[in-house]
Design a protein around this nucleic acid. Structure first.
Length: 565
RNA sequence: GGCCCCAUCGUCUAGCCAGGUCCAGGACACCAGGUUUUCAUCCUGGUAACGCGGGUUCAAAUCCCGCUGGGGUCACCA
């Protein structure tokens, strides 16, 4: 095995979509490796047979690839004509379930060297002991009963095929973690018991697998969430028992919701359940689910819906689900660039000034890969501020060229908003691009900006207030100007945005009024509202015929409103 | 509850390690004004924080202690 100067890894368990917190961990691991000129390894921790799934694994790989967090080694994935992953150092496989022999070899060694031992208690027995400990308010610790069994008997029982777990004999000494972010953290031996390294089902526990794999894959730096800090002394003990080197550790602070709660996938279900109750819905409003399952889901606080069902439900309820998984952010129309930038900044700071003296906050993946350093890592937990992310995202969208925006928007729509993609093809979206780009914070927002073009000419809902203000108020000058300009439109051959703008300007001048006097009635007439993209673009998107239709329809609607008064 | 980690504007943070240049800087949000045919963009300005209490020191956001608060963890999950 060849060991590079720096090898980091991201090791998700394939039990669901990639959580946004996981994405940040992966991003910083990636950045750390890139900066050091090392390698970033992806490993799949699928030792929990009951919860792991191949589809989750695939989803996580795709999410990472979409973000642009490319792994040098690991499971292979074809993405946009590129192959990610591979095994150039021959350290695979990268699925823990395929590495059982490796783990068992090491476990056997530990047992032979009397550093680990089989234990025969059933989960039920241990649970009883644990409950007793809680009842008497003493901390629970495994009582080492497995060690009481004479060695020969242990061997005999194992050989006889009796179900057992294997536990590590924890050393009776304090263990210090030298953490790159938090400094030295020492934990006393009383805090640990002989934890399980192999389960009854023969699979290693996370602790054993992670230590063996990190060592065998040559991992030099482990960057992970702070929830693992207490595990690290266990891992160090395991490394010492196995004769492995201890890698450098860095435990980064966790990310929370703005209200301080954990960012959990369940938040989505929670919100949906609340909306269902508020709206008094009693039977399943979506086809893919029957009433029975719906009721069961509603009743059980911990019950989670499949992603597709949840999305369908949210649509019916008219609610926006909170984004928690990378997949949610993709669907909502965030750009990887903005998401990565925001994520990196959540807990890491480049500590660099821009030329104008402000702090550097906006940077891309190249910058991260060439400037990331542990020195910039913060220690405090942070809250996920969607509003700031939205700001990053709108800026990233606005900075796109029209061509790129149209391409990205179209691809997004094909995948997440087919209705939109049907109404506007890629060329139409290019026409829309200048109008939409600066007006949407996410790709999903784009729909709202061009909403006026999505309804049929005879289906426009006129905003009474806007109609009144622009067309009726005063001496009906608004309506007169509108009808006057209708003739101009009819005579136009070139119906481009520029030509329209010019025509409006010329017409206003000829009538001796300000541009607004012509523009607003026109805007209200064709969109139904007082707000829309610039007139040239608005009319251009609709096309000449549609504009004339809408002006006529508006005229009728004004007469009917006037009659009512 | 035990153990462990953390603590600067509403939020993310710079400053803290090597105390004075900090009546604390930036970003997002918010408020006001300007540009604009509306909206958005953009520009200008503004409001806003060192959790509390002790120490050490000529001097503390920065060092020490306590408290409070937040978080993690205590699985045959990872």
């Amino acid at each position: 095995m060849k060991t590079a100067s720096c090898i980091t890894r991201f090791a998700p368990s394939p039990t669901g979509h990639l959580h946004i917190g996981g994405a940040r961990t992966a991003l910083l691991c990636w950045a750390f490796a890139k900066k050091a000129g090392g390698k970033f390894v992806l490993r799949i921790e699928d030792t929990d047979q009951t919860r792991s799934s191949a589809s989750s694994m695939k989803g996580i790989l795709e999410d990472l690839a979409w973000l642009g967090i490319e792994w040098d080694e690991g499971p292979e994935l074809e993405y946009k004509g590129q192959t990610l992953g591979g095994d150039p150092r021959d350290v695979g496989p990268f699925f823990q379930a395929q590495r059982l022999d490796l783990y068992n070899t090491h476990i056997r060694t530990l047992i032979e060297e009397d550093k680990a031992y089989p234990a025969f208690e059933t989960p039920e027995e241990l649970e009883a002991l644990r409950k007793e400990a809680i009842a008497t308010k003493t901390g629970y610790k495994y009582n080492r009963a497995g060690l009481e069994v004479p060695l020969e008997e242990r061997i005999a029982r194992v050989d006889a095929g009796e179900l057992h777990v294997v536990r590590l004999k924890m050393p009776d000494e304090p263990i210090t973690v030298h953490d790159a972010i938090l400094g030295e953290v020492t934990v006393e031996p009383e805090e640990f018991d002989d934890f399980i390294i192999r389960k009854r089902d023969g699979f290693p526990t996370y602790h054993l697998a992670v230590v063996v794999d990190d060592a065998l894959m040559g991992v030099t730096h482990v960057l992970r969430g702070q929830e693992h800090l207490i595990n690290t002394p266990r891992h160090i003990a395991l490394q010492r028992a196995l004769g492995f080197d201890t890698p450098s550790y860095g435990h980064m602070p966790l990310i929370f919701n703005p209200d301080g709660s954990k960012m959990s996938k369940r938040d989505k279900d929670k919100l949906a359940k609340k909306a269902v109750k508020e709206q008094g819905i009693e039977s399943s409003p979506i086809e893919s689910m029957n009433d029975e399952d719906f009721a069961a889901w509603l009743k059980d606080k911990t019950c989670q819906l499949a992603s597709d069902d949840l999305i369908a439900l949210a649509k019916v309820l008219g609610i926006t689900l909170p984004e928690i998984d990378v997949e949610d952010f993709r669907r909502a129309g965030y750009l990887p660039k903005a998401l990565n930038n925001y994520l990196a900044l959540l807990g890491w700071n480049p500590k660099t000034k821009n030329d104008d003296g402000t702090d550097l906050e906006r940077f891309d993946m190249d910058y991260l890969a060439s400037h990331f350093s542990m020195a910039g890592m913060g220690k405090g937990q942070s809250k996920f501020d969607r509003v700031k992310l939205l700001s990053f995202n709108s800026d990233a969208i606005a900075a796109l060229t029209d061509d790129t925006f149209a391409e990205i928007w179209y691809d997004w729509a094909v995948q997440y908003d087919p209705e939109l993609a049907n109404r506007f093809d890629a060329d139409a979206m290019l026409t829309l691009a200048p109008a939409v780009k600066t007006r949407c914070k996410t790709l999903a927002d784009g729909r709202g900006v061009v909403g006026f073009a999505l309804v049929a000419d005879d289906a426009i809902q006129y905003d009474g207030k806007a109609v009144h203000k622009a067309l009726i108020k005063g001496d009906k000058k608004g309506l007169e100007l509108l009808l006057g300009f209708r003739a101009v439109v009819e005579a136009m051959d070139d119906f481009s945005a520029q030509a329209i703008e010019q025509a409006v300007k010329d017409f206003a001048e000829s009538q001796g009024v300000g541009m607004g006097k012509v523009a607003q009635p026109l805007r209200v007439a064709v969109t139904g509202a007082a707000v829309s993209p610039p007139l040239g673009q608005t009319l251009g998107i609709l096309g000449k015929k549609s504009v004339l239709n809408r002006i006529d329809r508006c005229e009728e609607s004004v007469y009917s409103m006037a009659t009512k008064e």
